[in-house]
């Protein structure tokens, strides 16, 4: 069933009109003197997987990190423009970045489990946000999150073991479980499979496909086949500019821009 879904990755014609979850308008970003993003404008729809592709240094990861304000941790980074989550400006003074990040989760390029047990890794978010009233509830959250990340069956009997003892692919799924444990609305994935072997990659891709029902997912990837496999819509970035955002099947068959065509057919990148 999953395989058939992945094959017909385009939005089904009968799907209801998509609601906009994240919208960006005129986003410009500088690292010190160097401008890294130029007037990026796009909308991300709810319960869809949106892929960002483009050559290295094109700004796709930078833009992704704007969406949960991870760029705030970089001192020299300056951002301009308007990014809205459910119509609310996330760079508004009234927005608490901690709360924003609870709503917009993130999975990183390299698996980065905390040097704690598997259980504590997943329970960390619910604990700091106070999502569980007691141990039983926390246990339940941990279990559902690990099941959600398709990891439960592999780790159920060793939840107290260190998360760093898992294999790379398992670690990445642990990080996904950690992200979904706080019930985010959006999950950002920054090249989540680039450090994984093909089998682990297949596991994670399968998982992304399944998570789509519950979450809005944005994935940055270097791998165009991956974008084609998991996403409904794909955005192509080049030199800090958004070149094109189209349904995935269209961008891979008949892109609007010559540049997109060149990139996809492997003439540069």
């Amino acid at each position: 069933m999953v395989a058939t879904q992945a094959a017909s990755a385009s939005p089904a014609p009968h799907s209801p009109p998509a609601t906009t979850k994240v919208s960006a308008r005129k986003v410009n970003l500088w690292y010190g003197e160097k401008q890294a993003l130029f007037d990026v404008e796009l909308d991300v729809y709810e319960n869809e997987v949106t892929a960002f592709i483009g050559p290295s240094g094109c700004g796709k990861s930078t833009f992704l990190r704007c969406l949960n304000r991870m760029n705030d941790t970089i001192a020299i980074c300056r951002i301009q423009g308007d990014i809205r989550l459910d119509g609310q400006d996330i760079y508004d003074k009234g927005i608490d970045v901690v709360q924003l990040r609870a709503r917009v989760g993130m999975v990183f390029q390299k698996p980065n489990p905390f040097p704690k047990s598997i259980y504590d890794n997943v329970a960390y978010g619910p604990r700091i946000h106070g999502l569980a009233a007691n141990k039983a509830e926390l246990d339940e959250i941990v279990e559902t999150s690990l099941r959600g990340a398709a990891l439960w069956n592999e780790v159920a009997d060793r939840l107290d073991q260190p998360g760093l003892g898992l294999s790379g692919g398992q670690q990445q799924r642990l990080c996904i479980a950690r992200a979904i444990a706080v019930s985010p609305e959006v999950i950002l994935m920054d090249e989540p499979c680039s450090a994984l072997d093909p089998i682990a990659t297949a596991h994670v891709e399968e998982l992304i496909e399944e998570l789509r029902d519950r979450y809005t997912i944005i994935i940055v990837t270097h791998n165009m086949q991956q974008a084609a496999r998991v996403s409904q819509r794909t955005a192509f970035f080049h030199l800090g500019k958004l070149i094109e955002l189209s349904p995935t099947d269209r961008i891979f068959t008949s892109p609007e821009h010559q540049m997109t065509q060149d990139y996809i057919t492997g003439r540069f990148g």
Partner: peptide
């Protein structure tokens, strides 16, 4: 088994 279907309000 998916989160969001459990007790936590999304």
């Amino acid at each position: 088994d998916f989160p969001g279907t459990r007790g936590v309000d999304p």
